[in-house]
């Protein structure tokens, strides 16, 4: 195990917990991990402003490791599809049309809206 891995994972879980606490205190309908993401982002920004090299932070190293295998973490929920094979076959047309159509519309709407509103000259 690389040194600092447990320390890094601890920070990530603690940020998630902080997110869960904030969600419960404020009753905003947002998932705890998303708030935890904001907590970690603010913490990293503060540390950078104080002159620390955040690239060496244990939380950053653990995050990189976890994100490299992000797709693995979605496998359990995806395998749940076996329980719905019958139902999905029966409703195949509405499910495929609605999911694919809505996905395409959403993708294009976000992309084009962003392009229209972007300040000229700030292109990445």
């Amino acid at each position: 195990m690389p040194p600092g891995l447990v320390v890094g994972l601890t920070w990530l879980v603690v940020c998630q917990l902080a997110g869960e606490v904030l969600v419960r205190l404020t009753a905003v309908p947002v998932p705890g991990p998303v708030v935890g993401m904001v907590v970690l982002l603010l913490a990293l920004e503060v540390r950078r402003r104080r002159g620390r090299d955040t690239e060496q932070d244990a939380a950053v190293l653990a995050a990189d490791g976890l994100l490299r295998h992000l797709q693995l973490l979605f496998v359990p929920a995806g395998v749940g599809v076996v329980a719905y094979l019958g139902a999905l076959r029966q409703d195949a047309v509405p499910v495929v049309v609605a999911v694919a159509g809505s996905w395409l519309l959403g993708l294009v709407v976000i992309g084009w809206t962003t392009r229209v509103l972007e300040r000229p000259g700030s292109r990445a």
Binding site: V13, C15, P31, P33, M37, V38, V39, A63, L67
Partner: peptide
Amino acid sequence: LGAATVALAV
């Protein structure tokens, strides 16, 4: 998955 969502801050 929760910790990985937090990790997207990086």
